[in-house]
Amino acid sequence: MVLEADFLDMKVCQPEEAWQWRETYSIRCECVERRKRERLMKSSDITDEFRKLRFQNFRIEGKHPIVVQAKQCALSYFSEFDNVRSLRENSISLLGQPGAGKTHLLTAVANNLIDRKGVSVQYFPYIEGTKELRDDFNLLTEKLERMKKADVLFIDDLFKPVKRVPRASDWQVEQMYDVLNYRYLNHLPIMVSSELTIHELVEVDEALATRISEMSKSFTVVIKGNRMELNHRLEGLKDV
């Protein structure tokens, strides 16, 4: 800590220089970091319920191997984030089967990036988010700018299908492409969950899909198979 008079006189030193001050030197108060994390979490639009989603409470006992692989991919992405964040392949995509835990795992990554690395994350639930933007155009520019400029953008349930038809109007595709292309050009990471595979995303918009594919090439898992084995919401209904 420093004396107020010394601080005002700009006599602030680093710990390694503290010998000059004997027992008086400057440190960053823990409350500063805590308040920073609180601000980042509040601005992320991650709900209180989703803040509880962590790697520790994602159960893999008895789960299909592809679900275990998805968790390992998410853990690896978090551990490697500092090394890859400025590279072309700096993103992660978990695709395929609904109910397999894609949102849980990517939210766990987001929560850890905020809490442990002080990284800003913007959460964008595709269905609710595009509806909000469409209903209030006054929010459009501000929201899109936040999505473009955040350290990490998390798009949840991109183009979520209805009866196997992707929800992707021309306007929705245009907004998503605008955001993703900006982040692609500026090497800003994205995290994407979607029930669509890359091939199915290509059918929606090839330019958008191939950018996602290129950015997340090192961290992509496609979850496909028997829904009774993969969708945790169907557990216990096998004989129904």
Rank of each mutant, 00 (worst) to 15 (best):
M1F: 08
A5Y: 10
F7D: 06
D9V: 03
D9Y: 05
K11E: 09
V12T: 12
V12Q: 07
P15K: 12
E17V: 01
W19K: 13
Q20T: 09
Q20C: 13
W21S: 13
R22S: 14
T24L: 10
Y25R: 09
S26Q: 08
I27E: 14
R28N: 05
R28F: 12
R28K: 11
E30D: 14
E30M: 10
C31R: 12
E33A: 15
R37A: 13
E38L: 11
L40E: 06
M41T: 08
I46P: 00
E49S: 12
L53Y: 11
R54W: 04
F55H: 07
F58P: 08
R59T: 15
I66F: 06
V67N: 02
V67I: 13
K71G: 00
K71F: 01
S76Y: 13
Y77V: 13
F78I: 01
S79A: 15
R85G: 10
S86T: 12
L87H: 10
R88W: 03
N90P: 07
I92T: 01
L95T: 07
G96K: 02
G99R: 06
G101L: 09
G101T: 13
K102H: 06
T103I: 13
T103A: 08
L105E: 00
T107K: 04
V109H: 02
N111D: 11
N111K: 02
N111Q: 07
N112T: 14
L113W: 01
I114K: 00
I114T: 03
R116F: 11
K117T: 07
G118I: 05
V119R: 03
V119W: 01
V121C: 04
P125Y: 04
P125C: 05
Y126P: 00
I127C: 01
I127K: 02
I127W: 01
G129K: 01
K131M: 05
K131L: 09
D135G: 09
D135F: 12
D135A: 10
D136M: 07
D136V: 12
N138I: 04
L139T: 11
T141M: 06
L144I: 15
K148P: 04
K149H: 12
A150F: 00
A150P: 02
V152I: 07
L153E: 11
I155Y: 00
D156L: 02
L158S: 05
K160H: 08
K160L: 11
V162N: 03
V162H: 04
K163Q: 11
P166E: 08
P166F: 07
R167S: 11
A168E: 03
S169I: 06
S169P: 09
Q175S: 03
V179S: 02
V179R: 00
Y182I: 04
Y182H: 13
R183Q: 07
Y184C: 14
L185A: 15
L185R: 08
H187P: 00
H187F: 09
P189F: 03
M191D: 07
V192N: 00
S193W: 00
L196N: 05
T197Y: 04
I198T: 09
I198K: 04
E200H: 12
L201M: 14
E203V: 06
A207M: 06
L208I: 06
R211C: 05
I212F: 05
I212E: 02
K217Y: 12
F219T: 03
T220S: 07
T220L: 09
V221I: 03
V221M: 04
G225Y: 05
N226K: 10
N226E: 10
L230M: 09
G236T: 15
L237E: 08
K238A: 08
V240Q: 12
